[in-house]
Nucleic acid binder design. Structure first.
Lengths: 217, 217
DNA sequence: AATTGTGAAATTGTTCACAGCA
DNA sequence: TGCTGTGAACAATTTCACAATT
């Protein structure tokens, strides 16, 4: 196995994965520019991190570097892609076709990253049956069957808070393992489900706190 | 000063602020239900955290609790609102009125949270002059003057990666201190600027890694 | 009796610094 | 010589556990 985890007790954190994802983005740029090697400090500069952080992260997954030269772009890129599971397209469903859902349906970066919104669901009968950016909108009542039949594992949740928990329960029961949640609501699920929250209003709380701090400083 | 920082060397991390923001959301619900007191363990349950975490976080900012009873909802809510700077409306500008920018202009949760998009900017002449959800779209060329004149401190950046760094430089030069960045790009700024990234494609990297892990487990 | 606030302990994450390799 | 990989040092964060308080 080429991306064999080294048998040490170093823990792979979600932060390491987040950073790998940044490294991959930089490696993609290097590939475009036909750059053959990149050092940990170059990777660090591109990602606003430190060189030792880069080396630690990469060393969790293997010995990818070449002493004296750095990392071979092509090889490292392939390894990181495999680690992150980006060597194949990623199939997801979208639940909720409001303003945000609509925007996500035409979000070009998803295609670029191999993320395919296979179908969408909504409660609004006027939307059901239509297609946006070639994605069919179905009745939410069909979501459970669809997930089971198509073995979907990932869902984007872009619905109002008040129904978020109930819909989550349905999705998880049907087999969804990962949810990207846009509702401003803490979702409860059993272990074995991964939830990532995109909580736009909350982001501004950092800002207002930060600005107030600096004004009083 | 009611929210006086206690003079201890305990550090207030961005994570504490993120959690305060969750507590506030729960406190808002309590207020609606006319609940008078809430304990650290109730707050913990609502936010998927631990009771000691809740107490530690709150104790960074003051002694808000009452031994034996918990926290007075009304008082704590007011304190946390002040800490987070949510006692006044928050004025922001939007840069980039593509699909995502459009969705943000009609995102109702912003209004609910007191976040006001004061105006928007785009390069596309066909959009300039129009108004969406009562927000005027202006030519990007005017952004620097607008920021200076209106003393804007917070910007939402919803433009393509390739121009993200250049536009960021302009915004920061004009006086912007906080940027909510939707471009899949690591932005470089001098210290004193706070950048928060909403990186939608990257969220899926967690998912595919997680799914692969569980399949091999 | 119940619950806070908080030092101390445990855990997790980051940086340092350098041996070893190409 | 230049750069990786990594143990050890350091720093930050979380959890524990209990005295103090109402």
């Amino acid at each position: 196995m080429s991306t064999a985890l080294k048998s040490k007790k170093n823990k792979i954190s979600q932060n390491s994965i987040a950073r790998l994802s940044l490294y991959l983005r930089e490696l993609n740029l290097c590939e475009l520019e036909h750059k053959k090697f990149i050092s940990s400090s170059e990777l660090a500069r591109a990602t606003n991190l430190t060189d030792s952080q880069v080396r630690k992260d990469l060393s969790l997954f293997g010995n990818f570097g070449v002493s004296g030269s750095g990392y071979a772009v092509g090889k490292l890129r392939a390894e990181v892609k495999t680690i992150l599971g980006k060597d194949k397209p990623i199939d997801v469903i979208l639940v909720g076709v409001g303003n945000l859902g609509l925007a996500l349906l035409s979000y070009l970066d998803f295609q670029r990253e191999g993320i395919r919104i296979r179908t969408a669901f909504d409660v609004d009968e006027r939307k059901v049956g239509r297609a946006i950016s070639n994605v069919q909108i179905r009745n939410i009542a069909e979501v459970e069957n669809y997930i089971k039949k198509e073995k979907m594992k990932i869902a984007i949740l872009a619905i109002p808070s008040h129904s978020a928990q109930q819909v989550t329960d349905t999705l998880v029961k049907a087999g969804i393992k990962c949810i990207l949640n846009f509702a401003p609501k803490v979702l409860k699920t059993a272990n074995g489900t991964l939830i990532r929250n995109v909580d736009l209003s909350r982001e501004f709380d950092f800002f207002t706190y930060f600005i107030r701090q600096n004004n009083n400083a």
